[in-house]
């Protein structure tokens, strides 16, 4: 084999392997989604929304308490985390763009973005669950908000930075003070990007389990009281999947499908919002 054929053969082989690895990655996505639909879809019915999670030995049950709990924990988590993230992102992009403080904040924020979420659960357990004397929905929401903050900070800064300085200068030239430039010009222009960040944060915490294990814990019964342990889908899935009953497994699959559909929808939605307009 001469050197040219050899080089071409190596090229062909390696590129084929690269195409193969891409198929490998896509294959797992397809496998996961297929299993989720196959196992979970048949259990989508009204009982899922109207009945609470079954106890050991109960024949029928749904996910009402877990769904409502997840919605509340996620909602409160975002309501706590998003404003802090928005403000910090605004600081990095506008008020403190050149301040020395911004460098460590950016750095630490990027590290927090990937920090192990179980450790955040332990942290909130120490600062809230122990002083308050028990597991509660509030501590779960705070744990989730700590995950929300870095996501929102990052996207807010990035999106505000995309707005050209000429817009800031134009507003300033009209005599607008900086806070007005930021709130009524920059924030308006970057609105869809900033919203995207918040949606991504929701998608991120909708399926988070580890930080809820010892903060919100779980609750077999329906509750709207955030001072009590609160049912939620991820911890329900964990407990039911590890449990011995078949109908628990079925509900765990239905919950998994529900979370996955929500998260994937949010992700695809954000991609549409962020699509470059030209």
């Amino acid at each position: 084999m001469d050197i040219y054929t050899r080089r071409k053969a190596i090229n062909f082989f390696n590129l084929s392997v690269a195409a193969g690895t891409t198929l490998f990655g896509l294959f797992f996505l397809a496998w996961l989604l297929w299993v989720l639909f196959q196992q979970g879809f048949s259990h989508f019915d009204w009982n899922l929304l109207t009945l609470d999670t079954p106890g050991p030995g109960d024949e029928i049950g749904g996910l009402r308490n877990a769904i409502v709990g997840s919605l509340m924990l996620t909602g409160v988590g975002v309501l706590i985390g998003a404003p802090i993230g928005l403000l910090a992102g605004t600081y990095l992009a506008e008020f403190g763009r050149y301040a020395w403080l911004s460098h460590p904040v950016r750095f630490i924020n990027d590290v927090l973005l990937s920090a192990p979420s179980i450790v955040i659960g332990v942290f909130v357990y120490e600062i809230m669950v122990i002083p308050m004397g028990g597991f509660s929905g509030w501590s779960g929401a705070v744990a989730l908000s700590i995950i929300v903050i870095p996501v929102v900070v990052r996207t807010t800064e990035d999106m505000m930075r995309l707005i050209p300085d000429s817009m800031r200068e134009a507003a300033a030239a009209l005599g607008a003070p900086q806070w007005k430039v930021v709130t009524s010009v920059i924030l308006k222009a970057a609105r869809s990007g900033v919203m995207t960040g918040i949606l991504l944060a929701i998608a991120r915490i909708a399926g988070e389990t580890a930080p809820l294990l010892f903060t919100a814990l779980n609750n077999q019964f329906f509750t709207l009281n955030m001072d009590e342990p609160m049912g939620n889908l991820p911890v329900m899935i964990f407990n039911f999947a590890m449990g011995p009953y078949d109908n628990w497994h079925d509900l765990a699959w239905a919950g998994s499908l529900l979370i996955t559909l929500t998260v994937l929808t949010l992700n695809i939605l954000t991609r549409f919002l962020l699509r470059p307009k030209k």
Binding site: T22, G25, L26, F28, L29, W31, L32, V35, L36, Q39, A203, A206, G207, E208, T209, A210, P234, I237, F238, A241, H249, A252, W253, S256, I259, T260, V263, L264, N267, I268, R271
Partner: peptide
């Protein structure tokens, strides 16, 4: 293709756990 691969990151880890176990 890029989007599909990135969606692998969006799937919550508890789902990977369920799928992994069963």
């Amino acid at each position: 293709v890029g989007t599909a691969i990135e969606l692998l990151a969006a799937i919550p880890s508890i789902i990977y756990g369920m799928w992994g176990l069963f």
